[in-house]
Design a protein around this nucleic acid. Structure first.
Lengths: 227, 227
DNA sequence: TATTGTGAAGGAATTCACAGCC
DNA sequence: GGCTGTGAATTCCTTCACAATA
């Protein structure tokens, strides 16, 4: 389905699509969902599918799926649907997970340690290559094969290993300071588990996972029902 | 600012507002953010603020903030702004966090244990009152003051303690089964950390926190920049 | 025939801008 | 004078519906 005889024009088309239109963030999240569903199909030996069938699995509408994909190109065959392997590969390219990403983790507290040990780290697209803390008592300790190091060494490791992504699991009161250091060290993207708003310099991407906010949303909907 | 001399009409207005309009989910998430900012202001001794100043702190527009609040009532004073304590209280009522919620956690693996120990559990609005697993080797072990119990006991605990919220941290392959048991046990809301799509029966709310998806979003934006 | 890809329509959320109130 | 609350305008996102096509 991917016409390898004319790769240049496809890449051009692909790139220009991405460049021109503005793509909703929700589309990116859904692509992750499609990717998982496709991987599962692939493992079950399913070779092809349709937007309709995929929609059943993931819980969005078929039109939504086709629209999401249309932002990036044409990956299906009218009248036939999509080849699972092909679409999966294309989505992995769009998401940039057709490679391995090295990741550092800053903050070797409980949550940090849990994440280090968390094998479900999505099948090796992301690999933790360094763990840092500012507590000297922890330096040298080993967790899941990784030695906890002084955060002073962060810039060196980031530069040497060309790391771009950092996971932040420090206490809220130190978080902004650490974010600044992460940015200075050259990290380009931060996934924060800190329950506080943080500012990042231009050019650095920040995403937050906030437990409390998620629970509060549940609390809201539960309260709403009984109001 | 809350006119306690005429509480009934205020409550009526409040309720009817919520009932009539459809409120964006993003508004609820932002309310959580406002709440944190207001709590911080409150701790710093700030007594009043404006949508403009709040906007600077949280990173949304002032109009957005006013619109979000308008879904639920009138909490400010034209020309003066908002009283911090008052607005904070109102938002906590909207979110349903002007009380304590008992929570159970199912899946005493690494992530589960990290969450149990996670003190940042947002200042006691949510308290874990039970930990469950299906591995007999773990039964009776104590984590952060909580004894790990047989998941068979879940219905009993949920009923006795009137628990409505459950946190799910089991492996993906068992997750759907466990979700079903949670729903049967009477839980009304589930916060899942499982990296897989899950189905819940009517009337049960499910929210997902998916590490891999968050990292994939970062990967996408990083890839985009260099494409 | 079956299903994609996509303009056009419809619906939601955000931003604007200002009347009204403190 | 300053700031809220809110209709109107705008922008963004989703769904519809169908021409194009393997």
């Amino acid at each position: 389905m991917t016409d390898t005889t004319n790769l240049v024009s496809i890449v051009k088309k692909f790139t220009s699509k991405i460049m021109s239109k503005k793509i909703p963030e929700t589309t990116i999240i859904r692509l992750s969902v499609y990717y998982r569903a496709l991987r599962q199909m692939s493992e079950q030996g399913v070779e092809s599918t349709s937007s309709e069938r995929l929609a059943e699995v993931v819980g969005y509408t078929a039109a939504q799926i086709r629209k999401d994909l249309a932002y990036f190109g044409q990956f299906g065959v009218p009248g036939r649907g999509y080849y699972v392997a092909d679409l999966k590969l294309n989505i992995s390219r769009i998401l940039g997970i057709n490679r391995e990403w090295e990741v550092v983790l800053i903050g070797a507290g409980r949550l940090g340690e849990a994440l280090i040990a968390y094998k479900g780290f999505e099948r090796q697209h992301f690999r933790i290559v360094g763990v840092f803390d500012n507590n000297p008592d922890k330096f040298g300790k080993v967790r899941a094969g990784l030695t906890i190091r002084d955060i002073e060494e962060l810039p060196k490791v980031v530069a040497e290993q060309k790391v771009e992504i950092g996971i932040l699991t420090v206490p809220a009161d130190q978080a902004q300071l650490v974010v600044n250091r992460m940015a200075e060290a050259g990290l380009k993207a931060i996934l924060s588990f800190v329950p506080a708003p943080l500012e990042v310099p231009e050019g650095v991407i920040l995403r937050r996972v906030d437990l409390a906010m998620e629970l509060e949303a549940l609390s809201y909907y539960l309260t709403l029902k009984t109001r």
